[in-house]
């Protein structure tokens, strides 16, 4: 099995289990508040790490390249409350443009 399919399988199974755990096992009970607070903060911590690795991550090094122009443009789009697709398109378009004129 290719590594791609293995990831599809593991992530799918893991997510299905996460979603079903409460309704199937616990009925109406809730998590203790300390634990719930930690789980709430998983998403911001992980997403920030993903921003960093996607923006400046390279193969075991930090790489500062044309992506940063695209991300700067995306920040403007986010501040203007643009729809998600516009944000993505702006980032890609600006990066591609800077790459084109820089080459």
């Amino acid at each position: 099995m290719s590594s791609t399919w293995l990831v599809v399988l593991i992530v799918g199974a893991g997510t299905v289990v996460c979603k079903a755990a409460g309704p199937v096992l616990l009925g109406g009970r809730t998590l203790p508040p300390q634990l719930a607070g930690i789980v709430d903060m998983l998403a911001p911590a992980l997403l920030a790490a993903l921003v960093v690795t996607q923006a400046v991550g390279g193969d075991r090094k930090l790489v500062f390249d044309e992506r940063l122009f695209g991300i700067a443009a995306a920040i403007v789009a986010i501040r203007l409350r643009a729809p998600l697709l516009v944000i993505i398109a702006v980032a890609a378009g600006v990066t591609a443009f800077v790459r084109l004129i820089g080459a």
Binding site: S3, L6, V7, I10, V11, G14, T15, C18, K19, A20, A21, G22, P23, L26, G27, G28, R29, T30, L31, A36, V39, D40, L42, A43, L46, L47, L50, T53, G57, D59
Partner: peptide, 27 residues
Amino acid sequence: AAGSVGAAATAAVLLNARYVPIGISVA
């Protein structure tokens, strides 16, 4: 980024760990 299967799957499943409390809230 040429990361391993384990790293890719772990990052994704951890991001979905929030569905445990969310699932409990609608249980």
